[in-house]
Design a protein around this nucleic acid. Structure first.
Length: 307
DNA sequence: AAGACGAAAGTGGTTGA
DNA sequence: TCAACAACTTTCGTCTT
């Protein structure tokens, strides 16, 4: 499967400089920042040809990859134990229909233990969340790894699979800088962001996972595109944030708050004004916080904002 | 009427004794 | 384990355009 190439030019500014961001699973125009498709699938090589053994046209060069998204990592053998349990006779490779039934059988047997069942349920949820958020497979796999560890360490007990799966996905997102927030995950699961946040911190601590401290810069392109700001303004936002980071004005503050404030300021400077309300809606930061942040930034960066 | 402002009280997390 | 603390939110009355 390859990247969808139907669009070669940006419909907005006709630039051919289109960039695919693997982490974010979206393609955007490098000129004007317009997001072209955000429903794309991971463009990585299509290696997962489990059943294409007929016709001698196995496209796979390395065999099926080990995927964390299969609860047994796709590594169990099909034939082994079936000789005993199924029909008693050895199964010939020739009969595919029989193979098919065996697989079905095995699928049931595989999900036997409670941990196994928990895991396979969780992996379903993880894939669901990731596909809803248009995240590439790499993020889903990272999430699955995290969940698996949590299960090994017995951290799931007393917690719902859903919340833990959501938290795992969020950790993976933090690690891979995908500009997603806890709210994004919470909305999809129709859960309280706080629950997910709590479990997120809990898992991180117990599994000793470190995530890079989120920079306000991470969210710039996403928010700019949601607010319909042009690339000049986007660059201005980045500039402001970088100055703020250099002066260490960002420590201990919520990164989205800083981004929101920078958006507000840049909007005025570049004459692409967005109201605090609009920015608040997109960034999920209250207007009060936007005010506090942007005043702080203006003070410390000797900017002026003639309004 | 819409947007911005800021005071005051409340929430939930972190830190340090 | 608890209290102090900082950041942030909610709510709401006021001012400005």
């Amino acid at each position: 499967m390859s990247v969808d190439t139907t669009l070669v030019k940006c419909p907005e500014c006709n630039s051919r400089d289109l960039v695919y961001d693997e982490n974010r699973g979206e393609r955007h125009c490098n000129e004007c920042g317009m997001v072209l498709e955000d429903t794309m699938i991971d463009p990585g090589a299509e290696w997962r040809t489990f059943t294409q053994d007929g016709g001698g046209q196995d496209r796979s060069r390395v065999g099926a990859p080990v995927s964390s998204l299969l609860h047994d990592r796709g590594l169990t053998t099909d034939i082994d134990w079936q000789n005993k349990d199924f029909s008693g006779s050895a199964i010939s490779h020739k009969y595919r229909s029989q193979m098919h039934r065996m697989r079905k059988w095995q699928k049931r047997a595989r999900t036997k233990g409670s941990k196994e069942r928990n895991l396979s349920e969780a992996l379903t949820r993880i894939q669901y969340i990731c596909s809803k958020m248009n995240l590439p497979k790499s993020v889903a796999e990272r999430s699955a790894d995290i969940y698996r560890k949590a299960l090994d360490e017995d951290l799931i007990r007393g917690r719902s699979i859903e919340v833990t799966a959501g938290a795992s996905v969020f950790i993976a997102n933090q690690q891979m800088l995908t500009a997603r927030t806890v709210e994004d995950v919470a909305i999809i699961l129709k859960l309280n962001p706080k629950e997910i946040g709590r479990t997120y911190r809990f898992l991180k601590r117990r599994l000793m996972i470190r995530t890079p401290p989120p920079s306000p810069l991470t969210y710039v392109s996403r928010f700019c595109s949601e607010l319909d700001l042009n690339s000049d303004t986007e660059n201005k936002v980045r500039e402001i944030i970088k100055m703020a980071e250099e002066k260490e004005l960002t420590y201990g503050k919520s990164p989205t708050g800083i981004t929101a404030a920078a958006l507000y300021i840049a909007g005025y400077q570049m004459n692409q004004i967005r109201t605090q309300r609009e920015i608040s809606d997109v960034t999920n930061v209250t207007e009060v916080t936007i005010r506090n942040r942007y005043k702080g930034l203006l003070d410390s960066l000797d900017f002026e904002l003639e309004i």
